[in-house]
Amino acid sequence: MRHLIALVFLFLAPMAAACPDAPDHSAALNDLLQRIQRAPNEYQARRISNEMWALWADAPDEAAQAVLDRGMGKRRSFDLIGALEDFDRLIAYCPDYAEGYNQRAFVRFLQQDYDSALIDLDHALKLSPTHVAALAGKALTLIGLGRDEEGQAVLRLALSLNPWLPERNLLQAPKGEEL
Rank of each mutant, 00 (worst) to 15 (best):
Ala59Tyr: 07
Tyr93Arg: 15
Trp164Val: 00
Leu161Cys: 03
Gln152Thr: 05
Leu55Pro: 03
Gln111Thr: 05
Ala6Gly: 01
Tyr101Met: 12
Gly100Ala: 08
Glu42Cys: 01
Val154His: 01
Leu84Ala: 10
Ala117Asp: 03
Gln103Arg: 14
Lys175Tyr: 10
His25Val: 05
Asn30Tyr: 01
Cys19Glu: 00
Asp113Tyr: 04
Leu68Cys: 06
Phe106Lys: 00
Pro23Asp: 13
Asp86Phe: 01
Asp31Pro: 00
Gln37Asn: 15
Asp120Ser: 09
Lys138Val: 03
Pro14Trp: 09
Glu178Arg: 15
Ala105Glu: 05
Pro166Val: 07
Ala124Met: 05
Trp53Thr: 12
Ala63Gln: 12
Gly100Tyr: 03
Ala117Tyr: 04
Pro129Tyr: 12
Asp69Ile: 09
Leu33Ser: 09
Ala54Phe: 08
Pro166Leu: 12
Gly82Met: 09
Leu84Pro: 00
Asn169His: 08
Asn162Leu: 09
Ala63Met: 06
Thr141Cys: 14
Leu171Gln: 11
Arg156Val: 08
Leu179Ile: 12
Asp69Ser: 15
Ala136Thr: 09
Met72Phe: 10
Asp113Lys: 10
Leu157His: 14
Ile119Thr: 13
Ala98Leu: 02
Ala22Lys: 06
Tyr43Met: 07
Ala39Val: 06
Ser26Met: 08
Gln172Ala: 12
Leu142Phe: 04
Ala18Arg: 15
Gln37Tyr: 03
Arg76Trp: 06
Ala66Asp: 01
Gly146Cys: 10
Gly176Gln: 13
Leu7Arg: 11
Leu179His: 05
Met72Lys: 14
Ala17Met: 14
Arg2Gln: 08
Met1Thr: 08
Ala6Leu: 03
Arg76Lys: 15
Ala22Gln: 07
Met52His: 10
Ala45Pro: 00
His3Ser: 09
Gly144Glu: 06
Ser160Trp: 08
Asp61Asn: 15
Gln65Ile: 05
Glu150Gln: 14
Ile119Pro: 00
Lys138Ala: 06
Phe106Leu: 11
His123Glu: 15
Leu32Trp: 04
Leu55Thr: 11
